[in-house]
Nucleic acid binder design. Structure first.
Lengths: 187, 187
DNA sequence: TTTTACAATTGACAATTGTCAAAAAATGCA
DNA sequence: TGCATTTTTTGACAATTGTCAATTGTAAAA
């Protein structure tokens, strides 16, 4: 069995039948560094699983790129508002490395959720996980300094610091590249 | 039919049977101003619906109260991390007015979700709504100034400004009461 | 290798916000 | 009503961060 099936089961313990159902709505794509998983103004109709590689989620604010999140290997990503509200995405998801991405279609997932309670529960678990992440990140942004958040990143997700350019990290932390540079020299 | 049933159906169009199932796990409480819906270190075992009144969600950071969110009438609230991870809550939910609150038990909801696909879909819709809210608030916090957020609040939820004391609003906006006071004189 | 373009750092200065103290205003209670 | 308490506002100053410009470093292309 492929590794990402195990990852799906770590979200919610799906039966073999449940996995097969999901599988019928999944597609694997190989993308190169710089390719887009989700383009600007495209409606997000899939949940993406970065099986191999590394991606970043960003958008433009006053002509500048703002990095919102990174997606390391073996993690999910999607544009929350575009997906649920079925509107064009202001978020852009880009591969920072050559990547292998599994696309799970919203249409398929919605269909399965209507008829299969196991899939519906899987989906609940998936989005409640996203909700917890979102909540923790919000707390972090509002009530920690940029330095504290940088240090936390250094401890908990050092691979992000290794893979992502400073300018992306700076906008992710909500500060300018200059300020990040000064923080780094003082640690 | 009571008004909050209609509100539940605005989240997801439940059948009469579905509503009855939920109803059996709901309890109504009347609380006074200053009462707690959720105490510190208590595990959040319900989703709360503020049918009448007004509540705020806050926590302590370095001995100071930080307001995280307000819950106006006809809205839901709960501690996301405490509820899903079943851990003691660092968040406190307090009534800022005499309130009528509907408690929907996690235990009941979990039980129903296992066997009733309609309830499972209702729950998915409820938490995806929370996820969208969380996402939008995160964008707002990270990439708007305190003044922009104050002005947006003034436009979209003026009742919060009327009901909540300045000090709560300040910590909600992530600034000091002094800075909020100065912003207000300049608008 | 050299060139070129982009990324990261550094310095000087401006703008914003926080801190602390005090005054003014509002609120609750006897 | 009047007093006590709390909240909000104001002022002075310090600390932090942003902006802009210049410099250095790095990596891909010629």
């Amino acid at each position: 069995m492929e590794a990402y099936f195990e990852r799906l089961r770590s979200v919610y313990p799906l039966s073999a039948e449940g996995l097969d159902l999901l599988k019928s709505y999944m597609a694997k794509k190989h993308l190169s560094k710089g390719d887009f998983i989700l383009r600007k103004d495209e409606t997000c109709r899939h949940i993406y699983f970065v099986n191999k590689g590394f991606a970043r989620i960003f958008y433009f604010k006053n002509g500048k790129e703002i990095t919102e999140w990174f997606t390391p290997e073996k993690n999910f990503c999607f544009s929350i508002t575009s997906y649920f509200e079925e509107k064009p995405s202001h978020l852009i998801i880009e591969c920072l490395e050559d990547s292998e991405v599994i696309y799970l279609s919203k249409e398929g997932l919605d269909t399965l959720c209507k008829t299969h309670i196991e899939i519906s529960n899987f989906f609940s678990k998936l989005i409640s996980g996203a909700l917890i992440l979102s909540q923790k990140r919000m707390d972090s942004i509002q009530f920690e300094t940029a330095r504290q958040r940088y240090e936390k990143l250094l401890k908990t997700q050092p691979y992000i610091l290794q893979k992502a350019p400073m300018q992306y990290l700076a906008s992710f932390l909500g500060i300018t590249p200059e300020t990040l540079s000064r923080i780094r020299t003082q640690i």
